[in-house]
C-alpha cells in the first residue's frame, strides 16, 4: 500500500516536471523566440496549462496526507523559497491569462509579458532551490539557532541555486523540444531547434555543476550516485540519447523527438529517485525524514489510495481526450 502511494507520488512528480515543466519553460523560451514566438507559444499552452499544474496539487496532497511530517518540516524550514514559488505561480498564471484574454492591445500587454517571463524563470529556479535544500542536508531539526541558521542556510547556498538553474534550463529544454512540433513552418522550426540545442547544452553543463557544487558543500553526491547501479545506468542512457537527439534535430520527427526528450527527463528523475530513496529530506545530524518514518496511519493510506485510484481512472482518459482534441493547430479565440 505504502509503495503504491510512493509510486503515484513519483509519477505525479514526473508528470509535473514534464508537463508543468514545459509550461514554465515556454515562458523562458519565449524570451528568445521573438514576436511571432509569443503568439505560437500562447496558442500552444493556453488550453492545457491549468490542467498540467494540477499535478503539483496532487503531489502536495499526497505529501501532506500521506507523509505529514515531511510536509510540515519543509513548509516550516523552507518557508521563504516556497513562498517565492507560490508568488511565481500566482503571477505567472495571472499574467498569462490576462495577456491571453485582455481585449485591449495597448501598453498593458507589455507588463503582462514582462511578469509572465520573469515569473516563468523565477518559479522553476526556486522549485529547484527547494529540492536542492531537501537533498543537501543543511536542514537542522534540532536547531534552536539564529534565523540565518534555521531558515536561510538550508537553501541560501550555491548548491541549491545551481539546482534551481538546472531546473530552469531543463524546463526550457523540454519547452523548446515541445515547440518544435507546434510550428508548421520550416523557418520557425529552425529557431526552436536552435533553442533546444542551446538549452540541452546549458542543462548538461548545469547538471555537471550540480555534482561539483554538492561536493564543494561536502555532500558526497558523486559517491551516492556511483553506489546506485540504477542511477548510473539511467544517466548513461540519458547521455546515450544525446547523439540520437542531435540527429533528430537535423531531421525532425515530432513524435520521436518528444518521446526521446521525455524519456530523458524520466530517466533523470528516476536516477535521482534511486539515489534518494527512501529519504525525502536529508537532515544535518543524520535524522533523515524518509517515507517510512513519516508515513500516515494505514487507514489514511487506504482511503487515499482509493481516492487516487478512482481519480486516476477519471483523469487519465480525460487528459488524453484534452490533448487529443487540441493536437495540431489551435482554434483562434
Amino acid at each position: 500500500m505504502l509503495l503504491s502511494i510512493i509510486i503515484i507520488l513519483g509519477i505525479a512528480f514526473i508528470l509535473y516536471a514534464i508537463l508543468g515543466g514545459a509550461d514554465y519553460g515556454a515562458g523562458i523560451v519565449e524570451i528568445f523566440a521573438g514576436k511571432k514566438g509569443e503568439h505560437t507559444i500562447t496558442k500552444a499552452i493556453a488550453p492545457v496549462w491549468e490542467a498540467n499544474h494540477v499535478w503539483l496539487i496532487l503531489a502536495i496532497v499526497i505529501l501532506f496526507a500521506g507523509f505529514p511530517l515531511i510536509f510540515s518540516t519543509i513548509s516550516t524550514v523552507l518557508h521563504i523559497p516556497l513562498m517565492i514559488v507560490l508568488l511565481g505561480i500566482v503571477l505567472r498564471g495571472s499574467s498569462f491569462t490576462f495577456r491571453h484574454y485582455d481585449v485591449g492591445q495597448n501598453g498593458s500587454r507589455k507588463y503582462y509579458t514582462l511578469f509572465f517571463r520573469i515569473s516563468s524563470f523565477i518559479t522553476p529556479v526556486f522549485l529547484g532551490v527547494t529540492l536542492g535544500a531537501m537533498i543537501l542536508g543543511e536542514i537542522d531539526l534540532s536547531a534552536s539557532g539564529t534565523f540565518y541558521e534555521q531558515y536561510l542556510r538550508p537553501w541560501l547556498n550555491i548548491f541549491c541555486f545551481t539546482m534551481g538553474l538546472f531546473c530552469a534550463a531543463l524546463f526550457a529544454y523540454i519547452a523548446a523540444v515541445f515547440m518544435i512540433g507546434e510550428v508548421p513552418s520550416v523557418g520557425e522550426r529552425k529557431r526552436y531547434i536552435q533553442l533546444a540545442r542551446l538549452f540541452l547544452f546549458a542543462t548538461t553543463i548545469l547538471g555537471i555543476l550540480v555534482f561539483v557544487a554538492a561536493e564543494w558543500h561536502g555532500h558526497p553526491l558523486f559517491r551516492e550516485f556511483f553506489a546506485s547501479t540504477f542511477s548510473v545506468i539511467a544517466l548513461g542512457m540519458v547521455l546515450l540519447l544525446v547523439p540520437v537527439l542531435l540527429r533528430l534535430f537535423r531531421q525532425p520527427n515530432i513524435l520521436y523527438l518528444r518521446a526521446v526528450a521525455g524519456l530523458q527527463v524520466l530517466l533523470i528523475l528516476l536516477g535521482w529517485y534511486a539515489i534518494q530513496f527512501p529519504i525525502l529530506v536529508y537532515e544535518k545530524h543524520g535524522n533523515h525524514l524518509t517515507f517510512y518514518n513519516t508515513q500516515a496511519p494505514a487507514a489514511t493510506q487506504l482511503q487515499m489510495l482509493i481516492a487516487l485510484f478512482v481519480g486516476l481512472l477519471l483523469i487519465v482518459p480525460a487528459f488524453y481526450y484534452l490533448f487529443k482534441v487540441f493536437k495540431g493547430a489551435q482554434e483562434e479565440q
Binding site: V54, A65, T300, M304, A307, V310
Partner: peptide, 18 residues
C-alpha cells in the same frame, strides 16, 4: 490534521483536476 482530513483533499484534487 493532514492524515485525518487528507481524504476530502484527495477527492478535491481529483474533482478539480476533472
Amino acid at each position: 490534521a493532514g492524515p485525518i482530513i487528507g481524504m476530502p483533499f484527495s477527492w478535491e484534487g481529483t474533482a478539480f483536476f476533472v
